[in-house]
């Protein structure tokens, strides 16, 4: 799809600001999101390409304003909802 993820050649984002060193996670929840994504990948419910597609289909404004692991979290929520693995109520209750 011609989504917001396909940024190659687009101007206006400024220079890439890559710090020389950075912790793997900026907060503990990011590590939990990584673990949840990897273990759901291991179930065989979807593969890496399906996962990528569900990040690409995030609304453009959400995509651009969400951090890396926030995108992973939103992707996991949407996939689990779409596949009937969780309900909105369950997501809301934590």
């Amino acid at each position: 799809m011609n989504g917001i993820h396909d940024l190659g050649g687009m101007d206006g984002f400024g220079k890439v600001d890559a710090p020389p060193s950075e912790p793997p996670f900026h907060d503990a929840w990011e590590g939990r999101v990584l673990a949840m994504n990897r273990i759901m990948g291991a179930t065989g419910e979807w593969n890496i390409d399906v996962g990528r597609y569900w990040i690409e289909t995030l609304p453009p404004a959400v995509y651009l304003s969400s951090s890396y692991y926030r995108k992973w979290m939103l992707r996991l929520e949407r996939l689990c909802l779409a596949r009937g693995l969780v309900t909105e109520t369950e997501l809301g209750s934590g």
């Binding site: 273990i39 291991a42 179930t43 065989g44 419910e45 593969n47 399906v50 596949r83 693995l85």
Partner: peptide
Amino acid sequence: PRARFGHGDRTRIGL
């Protein structure tokens, strides 16, 4: 479409 994805020679854990 819904599909199950294998993991090469690894066994998926299933839900």
